[in-house]
Amino acid sequence: MSDCIGHSAPEPAFLEPWHAQVFALTVSLNEAGRFSWADWVEAFSATLRRNGLSRNLDGGADYFNAWLQTLEAILAAQGSASPQEVALVRRDWEEAYLNTPHGDPVQLAR
């Protein structure tokens, strides 16, 4: 093709699977009425502002890290998932990965 200027190859919607997961979690919680989208935008933009004070955010990994921080903070404030619960279940997942032979599906023991 001769007209490449201004055209980019199609980008995947999400660069990493966890970006898609955290996006879907948030949309699903909003649609279930756990928080309004306006409240989400307010909290998320505050996180981006805070994180962007020290450096320029690139819109890639930075962006979804800020997204995850925001969702964790909202769920902690609502009592839906406390930081302690998240740390415990995160550790369970980590152990499950370390104890599952390569190639087998990774599942939580309990």
Binding site: E16, P17, W18, Q21, V22, L25, L29, A32, R34, F64, N65, L68, L71, E72, L75, S80, A81, E85, V86, A87, V89, R90, D92, W93, E94, Y97, L98, N99, T100, P101, H102, G103, D104, V106, L108
Partner: peptide
């Protein structure tokens, strides 16, 4: 063993597990 996902990926999995268990 299975390849360990990144820290944020594990945190998202944890949220998903907790919220699913609570029926949210």
């Amino acid at each position: 063993h299975a390849l360990l996902p990144s820290d944020p990926a594990l945190r998202v999995k944890a949220l998903e597990t907790i919220l699913t268990r609570k029926g949210l």
